[in-house]
Structure formats: C-alpha cells, structure tokens
Amino acid sequence: MSNINRLFKNQLKVINIGLEAFYGDLKKQKVEVIHVDWRPPAMGNKKMVSLLNRLKS
C-alpha cells in the first residue's frame, strides 16, 4: 500500500492554510480541520511588495 493510501485510511487532521472555502468543505464532511488565515504578502501585488521592501532598508 502506498504512503498516500495509508494516509487516507487514517483519521485525517487537517490544517488548512489560505483559502477558507477548502476549510468549509472539509467541515461539511465532518473532517477535523483548523483554518489558518494566511494571505500572500500584499495579496500578491508585486508593486506593493516592492514598495514595502524599499521601506525595509
């Protein structure tokens, strides 16, 4: 049995990072899950990341 199949035969404990919809879907399926409210820096806006980096000098 592959490791991945072994994993899914166990009771899953999931940490969901980022998109909250995945957390909601697992909750509905009664999977034990906690959600981490993570977003990429400046929501992925490269211009803003560059401006922020300039202020870190």
């Binding site: 977003r39 820096p41 400046a42 929501m43 803003m48 401006l51 922020l52 202020l55």
Partner: peptide
C-alpha cells in the same frame, strides 16, 4: 499603512 498593505 505598511501593515494594512502587507497583510491585506
């Protein structure tokens, strides 16, 4: 403002 932009 830096924290608002960085964290979203």
């Amino acid at each position: 403002i830096r924290k608002v932009v960085e964290t979203g």
